[in-house]
Amino acid sequence: MFNYTFHWRPALNALPQMLEGAVVTLQIAVLSMIIGIAIGVVLAVMQGSRFRVFRGIASAWVEVARNTPALFQIYMAYFGLGQLGIHLDSFVALLAGITFNNAGYLAETFRGGLRAVPRTQVRAARSLGFGAFDAFRLIVMPQMFRAVFHPMTNQMVWAILMTSLGVIVGLNTDLTGVTQELNVRTFRTFEYFAIAAVLYYIIAKIVTLGARGIAWRLFKY
């Protein structure tokens, strides 16, 4: 028989702590995206390289990142590297795992974006005296990022949600970690995790709406 009594006041009183955890969540997600974008661009270029070893490294990264659970990738960063004498704390291990995952997905996204840029753009740039690197940096990359902007937004939201996996490697400073600590002390599971879910939803919606505003400003012409 349902006899659970809700007590929302303690959970609401803990909201400042949970908001501090939300800030850590955002820090991890943003860092993982910044690093993941940089690695993803390199991997996308490597996939199109004429050198087989570069293509092999990039393809292996993408295959592992996209076809194994993110949970396993975080475990490998925390426990697996520890077996090899490389000890990462919970924050860094979570960041490494999410970055690895982001880079793999973004590499495929960027590869599609690169294919969407007509080759004539590069030839035109070279005919105007641009070097290969400058043509890629100034002509190809802006068009590629425009083509993949919305998929990147989805990946950012996914990165935010993936930070919740930090609790399995002992991270207790992000939103899920703080919520779990509060739950252990009070056993008010429904109240705390309901509020945490609302905070995740709000963060994801802010990112999505912010991205729409940026896209409208940058790509309205």
Rank of each mutant, 00 (worst) to 15 (best):
F91W: 13
V92F: 10
M141C: 08
L209E: 12
Y200M: 07
A44P: 10
M76L: 15
L114P: 05
W8P: 01
F72P: 00
F6H: 13
L15T: 08
R119P: 00
L12D: 01
A77R: 00
D89F: 00
L26Y: 02
W8Y: 11
Y105V: 00
A58H: 07
G170H: 05
A58P: 06
Y78S: 02
M156C: 07
I74Q: 01
R55V: 15
A96F: 15
R126Q: 15
D89L: 03
L15K: 03
V117K: 06
L165F: 08
A60W: 11
P16N: 06
K220I: 09
I34P: 07
A147S: 14
G129S: 09
F72Q: 02
L182G: 09
N154H: 04
A147P: 00
Y105E: 04
F193V: 03
T189V: 15
R123C: 05
I202F: 07
A211W: 07
Y75I: 14
T109G: 05
T189P: 01
V169E: 11
V167R: 02
G48K: 11
V53D: 09
A65G: 02
V157H: 06
V41I: 15
R137Q: 12
V30D: 09
F145Y: 10
Q155H: 04
I57G: 07
Q73I: 05
P151H: 04
R217S: 13
I37S: 10
L128K: 02
M162T: 14
F100A: 10
A204V: 04
R52A: 14
R146P: 00
M46N: 03
F79H: 01
A132E: 15
N13S: 10
T189L: 12
A103V: 03
A60S: 13
A125L: 09
N13L: 15
